[in-house]
Amino acid sequence: MIRAIAPDDEAAALRAFAATFELDEDAELLRPGAWTRRYFANPAGTRATIAALPDGRLLAQYAGLPQGAWLDGERATFTQGVDSLAVPDEGRGGLGSLFVRVGRRFAQAYGGRRGEGDPFMWGYPVREAWRIGRAALGYETIRSQLALVARVDALAVHVRDEALVEELAAFPDSLDAWFDEHRKRYAAICDRTRAALEWRYAGRGYRFAVATRGGALRGLAVCRDVEIEGARRFVLCEWLVEHDARGALLAWAREAAREAGVETLYAWLPPWCEDFLALQVAGFRVHPTSRVLVGRSYDKRWAPEWYAENWFMTLGDTDLV
C-alpha cells in the first residue's frame, strides 16, 4: 500500500533505513526522538510517502524536508528531497519500480502551484538517484554545486569596530524582524525565522552568533565542525550578513574554527550573491564539489533554472550538515 507516513511507522522506517543505508549505531537518526523530530516536529510540516506491507514492513520511501519560504514576495513551501530509499530486493528495479511509483505519488500529493502545493522541490541526489530521478521523476539540473573554502590562517579579515559579535545559546527574538527585512533582497529564500532555526539547530551541537551595530542586528552565522566532501571543515551553515558586519562575523567564525581545532572554513553560497565574491576577497577559494543541485518546479511561473539565479541558499538549507 502506498500512503503518507504516520508517526507509528517509526520502527519500520528505521529498520528500512538500517537495511538500506547500513547506518552506524550512533547515527543521529537512530537517537531517541530524532526520527519523530525530523518528520513530525518540522514547523513547515511533513512530507513523506511510503510503500508498506499490511504487516507494517516498509519497502520504499520518498520523503522531503519542507521549508517555509518567500517566493517573489509571497509565502510558499519548498521541499528538499531526503531519505528516499527502496529496501534491497524489494522496492528497486528500474523505471517501473516501486520506488518510482512512490516518488510519483509523493509528487502528486505535495507538489503544486504556489498556494496549492509545494512549487519547488530540490535536492542533491546521489548518482544512482540522479539517473532515476532524471528519467522518471522530473529532476532537472540547476547547477553544479561550488564550495567556498578558506584556510583559517590565510583569512584576511577586516573588522569594523562598530560591529559587535555575540555568541548565543538561543536565537534572539529580534531575528524575525531582521529576517523579514533581509529576505526582501532575494527573490527566493527559505525562512531564517527563530522558529525555523530553533527546529533546525537548537540542541544539536551548532554554534551561532549574531553581529550588531548600535544595537541593531546586522548578521547571523551558524557554524559547526563536520566531515564534508571528504574532510573535516568548520562549516558556515548559515551566513546572512550586512557588508558592515561581515568582517566581525568572519573573525568570530575564524576563532571558533581555531577553538574546534579545524583548519578550514567552508561555505556554500550562490555565485551571484554579494558574499560569494566578498569571501573570495577575504581569502576563500572556490572549489568544485561532488554535488549537483537538482530541482523540479510545480509552478510554471518559476522554472527550475530560475532558482539557480534567484534562490539564496546555504548549507543550512540542506540536511548535509
Partner: peptide, 23 residues
C-alpha cells in the same frame, strides 16, 4: 572547468570566480 587544478591555481594568483551569463 572547475575540476581542473588550474581553476584553483589561478585563484591562488589573484583570479576570482564570478557568475557568467551562460548555461
Amino acid at each position: 572547468p572547475e575540476w581542473s587544478p588550474h581553476f584553483l591555481t589561478l585563484q591562488e594568483r589573484g583570479w576570482c570566480v564570478h557568475p557568467a551569463p551562460y548555461r
